[in-house]
């Protein structure tokens, strides 16, 4: 059993929901990422999504785009991200790490080489935004050899037929994109999302996380009521950007923000 599944089972047994923050590796500079990761965990993150910078982040809004550009100024590529994960694993053997990004860096490294190196670094899962299940057979067979989960997205536009196909290929958990749009959008309709999640649960036993449009403690709490995991990206990345030149304060504030979300999610509904 992989760390991701172990994590969800432990949370379920304790009747808790997962909190999954997203940060871009190397944003605003490479040396900040490792302390940030540890702070997120210390303040209540269950799983971490670590963004792999890509020059053309087609599915991201301005906040994540700019975080990517900041990281790319330091030439942070996939192998640097794997180095950061290796460092993190020296002191943390428990918290699952999921890489999130676009296909081309993985494609250029090569699927087999990527799977081997990611596994050696201690990566538990990967979410390739622009790789739907239809195109993923080859990568998935490499990942399976090393026990790395491939997390797939589900969207409001996903038909029932595709939903069933995606559920059959996914492992770890499913990531429901709560709205039509890019990351950092602001139009979350809680009731509509709750209905969709209920529908998805009829089709799969995998945990279902919700991301896109979750901005604060209040929306995190609402979403945690009907999902297994709450994914928060742009608000955290925004906070990091605002304090980019004050590293110590940035790390403290990021920790506080995660602690607030943790408290909101864990409070009785």
């Amino acid at each position: 059993m992989g760390r991701i599944t172990e994590c969800f089972e432990a949370l379920k047994a304790a009747n808790h929901k997962a909190l999954i923050p997203f940060i871009t590796a190397g944003d605003p500079s490479p040396e900040v990422t490792l302390p940030l990761l540890h702070t997120l965990v210390e303040n209540g993150a269950d799983i971490i999504e670590l963004g792999v910078p890509f020059s053309d982040p087609m599915a991201d809004g301005p906040v994540i785009q700019r975080s990517t550009e900041r990281a790319l100024k330091h030439n942070i590529g996939l192998h640097n991200v794997l180095d950061i994960v290796s460092e993190f694993r020296k002191t943390n053997k428990k918290t699952p790490i999921i890489l999130m990004g676009y296909l081309n860096p993985v494609e250029i490294m090569g699927y087999g080489k990527f799977a081997k190196q990611a596994s050696a670094a201690g990566v538990d899962g990967i979410l390739v935004v622009d790789m739907p299940p239809e195109e993923s057979d080859e990568l998935q067979s490499e990942l399976k050899q090393y026990g790395i989960d491939q997390v797939f997205l589900l969207a409001p536009t996903t038909s029932d037929k595709r939903l069933a196909e995606i559920c059959s290929k996914a492992s770890g958990f499913l990531y429901y994109v709560s709205l039509k749009g890019v990351t950092g959008s602001n139009q979350l309709n809680i009731e509509e999302v709750a209905g969709k999640i209920a529908h998805i649960r009829n089709l799969t036993g995998l945990p279902v996380g919700v991301g896109f449009g979750i901005k604060d403690a209040s929306s995190a709490k609402s979403v945690s009521a009907f999902s297994d995991a709450v994914i928060v990206g742009s608000s955290l990345v925004n906070l990091i950007a605002d304090l980019a030149d004050k590293t110590d304060r940035m790390i403290t504030e990021a920790g506080k923000f995660i602690a607030q979300l943790r408290m909101a999610i864990d409070a009785p509904h």
Partner: peptide
Amino acid sequence: VKGHFGPYGGRFVAETLMGPLE
């Protein structure tokens, strides 16, 4: 049928666009 010209082409987009492309 999947839009491939040999190894090239295909449909590499985020899930939200898969339905509209179909």
